[in-house]
Design a protein around this nucleic acid. Structure first.
Lengths: 368, 368
DNA sequence: TTGAAAGCGCTAACAT
DNA sequence: ATGTTAGCGCTTTCAA
């Protein structure tokens, strides 16, 4: 087996505490330092993080729960999160809950068992009651992209309504009045926000709502294709479409090509997410992009900050000695700190940005 | 703090071993079982996996190293892996090494420190010398998609050459002779395999190679667009293209649309990966798909199997029942031959499949 | 600065 | 079937 601190102690003739001190950046006499380093080298010693975790009650692992690993928006955020956390010595345990609330709860439970130090979650469920375990244990919870009801914790959100509103406004400013939207599923909160943004822009632009101009898709490529087809069928005079996520944007474009609807000559399009695709697409697509990297970074930073905060997981490391003579001298004090000062949860709201492409064409306003 | 086994022991008046036995599926007298369950319920006891890990020297965590989490091929595989492993009580620690060999080595090191029980890696680097730590420690290593030199471990691969060969053969059978390929980067082994498959098919079909029909892209959407444009420019008579990964397939199609090259009337296309996209695309795309889910599942299964194998660990552990779920107890061959440690590594090669779409059109062979 | 010793929460002999 | 007792490898008082 791998060498342990004891081996180092024995090899150097020093005590365990000295080795530990050295490993944790404490002061060690120069000659001992050399001795230790030499022994570590020879014995290929490496700290056992598991043992350390048991002792310190901090595993240096962060749990991550996401709806779909297999989704570019999630994947980009998690990529960043993982990078930041690992650079700070934290490992991440990722659980994909397949957008299923039950699996989400199980994942949270699973991670709690593994004693992760904190939880980063992109919620699928509406209620976050199962997050209470973490908050009660004084372990930080950071929600990404969406806030859960009844859940205490920090949030990193995006201004979805504003983003959609801005996008649609641009279409209006370019002279469009018959503007369709391929919105997301009703159950998805962020999808509803985007739809609201669309409606808001119309209202502000003095353009009446038309239900025929609103299609919903299930956030998939296919949903986007279908959405565009229906919109085109129902609205021969529609000149512009706003599509509210990446996969559907892709589908909409494919469908437009299929239908022979030239972009932007016949139809202006503003899409969502995935700047890579927008850049590669011809004509270069105008899209709303979410700052995935920043979302990830902010979320990770927030987590690190919470972890660095003192006090939370006060384990009054008192010595509980068990007397050998049968006296049960064992008594668990109220380790509950009742008046726990409610930490002020932070909500960070990030701005999306609009990436100008060639998929929006100004139309003559006088035509009608 | 959370309750511990000791608390349960005290509450029930039973001994520690009994509690442990109960928790690990051992036999406990009925009335004690009830007692224990009751206490567990009341005290909200949950096993501390960290402590268990320290004791058993098995953390029930698998390390995963991948080139890009943010890549649909990787993401799909990992999604499956994570699912399978978690269903068996294993957590996964994922490290994204950004296709960087150095970061890859660091990630492996990082995971080793965390004492993961095994390593699943989709290699970026060519040599796997840094994997030796795992194999030396008797910890299983499973490579996905690519084999590393100097690395001992199991592999789950795909027959890239065969897949490409089959795809190109189909084009030939449909009468095509001017067949282009948008191949991947030279450094990527799997990309070279696919190129070889293309060449092989041509050879078998008696069609001479033409270097003008071979373009390389960097596996991105943009690379695909450029590749297609160059191919079209250089080869006015080209009637078919084989594109060797998803992102480039997407780019090629976008570009074809842009250039007004009708698919499949003017150009037949066979793409790669991502069946979702192929299905949504119009015309429905003919593609080669890799069985990502199966790759993930096989890799995870292989890992689980290795983990269940006895002997590797120095710790002479006796038959231990894993967590409550149906993991069967394993048998240990009695042949204790210490010097006879040559684990036979397994290589699983999976078949890709061809998904027929509408993007390949038969052409008249007599025309020329 | 350093050493000795007591655990963190669990499993696993070894008894009974 | 159950209790007793050692540790797993580390951090952390408390002395020296």
């Amino acid at each position: 087996m791998a060498a342990t601190m004891k081996d180092i102690a024995r090899a150097t003739g020093l005590g365990l505490a000295t080795i530990s001190s050295y490993l944790n950046g404490g002061n060690v006499r120069e000659k001992n330092r050399i001795l230790i380093e030499q022994a570590i080298e020879e014995l290929h010693f490496e700290v056992n993080e598991v043992a350390r975790g048991l002792k310190t009650n901090r595993t240096k692992v962060i749990g991550i729960v996401i709806p779909e690993l297999n989704n570019i928006f999630c994947a980009e955020i998690i990529t960043e999160v993982e990078d930041v956390l690992r650079n700070h010595g934290y490992a991440t345990m990722i659980c994909d809950c397949r957008t299923d609330e039950k699996r989400e709860a199980e994942a949270v439970e699973f991670l709690y068992h593994r004693r992760v130090d904190g939880l980063l979650i992109m919620p699928s469920g509406k209620k976050g009651t199962y997050l209470q375990k973490f908050t009660k244990a004084g372990k930080p919870v950071v929600m990404i992209d969406r806030k859960m009801q009844e859940a205490a914790g920090d949030c990193v959100l995006v201004d979805n309504e504003g983003a959609a509103r801005d996008a649609v406004k641009r279409l209006i400013q370019a002279g469009h009045t018959k503007i369709g939207i391929i919105a997301g599923p009703k159950e998805v909160y962020t999808a509803e926000e985007r739809l609201r943004g669309y409606e808001l822009a119309l209202k502000e632009g003095g353009i009446p709502k038309e239900s025929a101009l609103v299609e919903r898709g299930n956030y998939t490529i296919h949903g986007g294709s279908q959405g565009l087809r229906k919109l085109a069928q129902k609205n021969p005079h529609m000149t512009a479409v706003f599509v509210s996520n990446y996969e559907m944007t892709l589908g909409a474009i494919i469908e437009a090509n299929e239908l022979g609807i030239a972009i932007p000559e016949k139809l202006s399009i503003i899409g969502f997410d995935n700047i890579e695709f927008a850049k590669a697409s011809i004509p270069r697509l105008s899209i709303v992009t979410q700052p995935t990297r920043e979302i990830g970074r902010k979320a990770a930073d927030l987590m690190l900050r919470r972890l660095a905060e003192p006090g939370k997981e006060k384990t009054p490391d008192r010595k509980s000695r068990i007397t050998g003579d049968g006296t049960p001298g064992y008594e668990r004090p109220e380790s509950e700190a009742p008046g726990h000062e409610t930490p002020e949860y932070k909500t960070i709201k990030l701005e999306t940005s609009f990436v100008e492409g060639k998929s929006v064409k100004a139309i003559e306003n006088d035509g009608q």
